[in-house]
């Protein structure tokens, strides 16, 4: 159940989020400068390779976000005390994950036009990624269906635990099927990473930077969700109070 007491914070920021925010700005500034200025062009792809510093971290963070959603949902369902805090983390993470998934598809589409010659292909990797995005948009829609906060938490937790099973399908689609999309570079099963040193470092920095963005957004979003839930709850409390007053006056 929600706490009936008023929230103890007047904003969603804390000392921790401010530190994460500053770190995010520092790392992302480095990624932008290194990605656009310091890193070399690729021998085949030329300047278009720079899209990688946004595309790849976005995809990884989208995966991470959906996995966090599943873990938080599992905690909500299977823990003895069904804490709505887990539900809010799950919902916040899914929202951020959808945002990063959209960034992944848009940047991938631009990269595809420059390298493959096509914005879009019904290729296994692209198709499964689009399907994953549609699934999580559905998840977010389910969270907004009519019902109590507990109903919302239960319904969405079940969907999150099923939807996360799509992630291995997306990731290994380039292995299972013949795909236009290239296979993994960093997560090469043989550990043979074929990437220029500075490109690799910038990509790694991008992953760190995007992870910090993810953490910062989650911390704020789950707090705004708490405020929203408390506002809804206070509306219910006010309605009950009004009803009580009606009966007293009668």
């Amino acid at each position: 159940m929600l706490s009936q007491s008023a929230p103890k914070f007047s904003s969603t920021g804390t000392q921790a989020t401010r530190i994460v925010g500053v770190l995010t700005i520092v790392v992302m500034t480095w990624v932008v400068i290194s990605g656009l200025v310091f890193t070399p062009a690729d021998v085949v792809q030329g300047e278009s390779v720079r899209i990688m510093y946004v595309h790849v971290p976005s995809a990884w963070i989208a995966y991470l976000a959906f996995i966090v959603t599943a873990i938080a949902s599992a905690f909500y369902i299977f823990a003895k005390r069904h804490s709505l805090g887990f539900d809010r983390v799950a919902g916040a993470s899914a929202e951020v994950g959808v945002m990063f998934m959209v960034i992944t598809l848009v940047t991938g589409s631009l990269w595809g036009r420059l390298t493959w010659g096509e914005f879009w292909q019904w290729d296994p990797r692209l198709t499964t990624t689009a399907f994953l995005l549609v699934t999580y948009i559905g998840y977010l829609a389910v969270r907004r269906l009519d019902g109590s906060i507990e109903q919302r938490a239960r319904r969405s937790a079940v969907i999150a635990l099923l939807a996360v099973l799509e992630i291995p399908l997306v990731h290994f689609s380039v292995v299972f099927w013949r795909s236009l999309h290239q296979r993994a570079t960093i997560l090469d099963p043989n550990g043979d990473v074929k990437m220029d040193g500075l490109m690799l470092f910038t990509l790694f920095s991008g992953v760190v930077g995007f992870t910090l963005v993810f953490v910062w957004l989650i911390l704020h979003r789950q707090r705004t969700m708490l405020l929203s839930d408390l506002a809804n709850q206070s509306g219910l409390d006010a309605a009950i109070l009004a009803r009580q007053n009606e009966s007293v006056s009668n």
Partner: peptide, 25 residues
């Protein structure tokens, strides 16, 4: 219809090697 696949290798452009090979790839 032609679609170009690119490998999972990323290598810095090197002018000397391009001149020797005639093609970047």
């Amino acid at each position: 219809r032609i679609e170009v696949k690119h490998s999972n290798e990323y290598e810095a452009k090197n002018k000397d090697r391009l001149e020797k090979s005639g093609s970047a790839a």
